[in-house]
Design a protein around this nucleic acid. Structure first.
Lengths: 145, 145
DNA sequence: AGAATACCAAGCGATTTAGTTGGAATTAAA
DNA sequence: TTTAATTCCAACTAAATCGCTTGGTATTCT
């Protein structure tokens, strides 16, 4: 039940961009460097996020990427679903799936649905803005000590 | 974020055994047939569950497997953790892990922790007995219609 | 003109998954 | 006492997936 690097790196990259929201385009190599990721690999993830409308890009020198919406309007769920697909622990509870129509007997399906719902509740309730706020809170805590 | 077949088949097998709890050993081929799984593959999963104390076995003719405890004392979480490992979406939130001690900066880690906690809450709250009860409820609903 | 960037598609080694195969040990039943 | 049914164990394997890398094109600022 692990996330792949797609989801994990993708969230890190989006968080990095949230940190600089409103400051114009940030080039990919900067993001990759700050988060310690392969630029070439990250490119694939970022290109998906752009196609899905969560990022804007500017080509050419001084170009880069920026969030397409405010950090408060992008959730962890948005990002993970784009990069990892539907967050379902089994194929039979993937949205709009057609297979497995023998719902009558399958008690295990109820279990997978509950897992899926709880995951989605969490990730849809956390926005990038929430993560920024959390970071600020953590920094304050650290100062006290 | 999919479960592997280990967790999925394993839960089905354990549920099948719960259906016949107290009736003596059930041979593996019966379980495999009823749930439509490969007997040889299932053997590996079942052997893990036995080693971890959730199943008892009887060797020889008329032998088979049976739950080592009452269905109400075995949770979905028990089964999934044995077969899938710690239910953590990322390595940095696996129990007792040593890597990633840079907790101070990593906001994403907080996200993975919340996902992990919500998954574990769900799977630890569902016992095999709950699944049996659910099945009974579903059967009753069906009769009404 | 040149450098810095985004964009695109294909390839690729390593690992994991989902089994299979082949056998040895044990036990009930014929 | 043989035979059939079963658990138990370890090794092997084909296919898929993962986590990238490579190589190139298009665009835009300086």
């Amino acid at each position: 039940m692990k996330l792949s690097t797609r989801g994990r790196y993708g969230l890190k990259a989006m968080y990095q961009l949230a940190l600089h929201y409103g400051e114009g385009p940030i080039p990919l190599n900067t993001i990759a460097d700050k988060q310690g990721l392969s630029e070439n690999y990250l490119e694939q993830l970022v290109s998906t996020l752009r196609r899905e409308g969560f990022l804007n890009s500017v080509r050419g020198a001084q170009g880069g990427y920026m969030l397409a919406k405010s950090p408060k309007d992008i959730t962890v769920g948005d990002i993970l679903r784009v990069l990892e697909g539907d967050m379902a622990p089994a194929d039979c509870v993937v949205d709009h799936n057609v297979i497995c129509e023998k719902e009558e007997v399958c008690v295990t399906k109820l279990v997978w649905m509950q897992i899926k719902d709880s995951i989605n509740n969490v990730i849809d309730s956390i926005s990038l803005q929430d993560m920024l706020d959390e970071q600020v809170k953590m920094d304050k805590e650290k100062l006290k000590v």
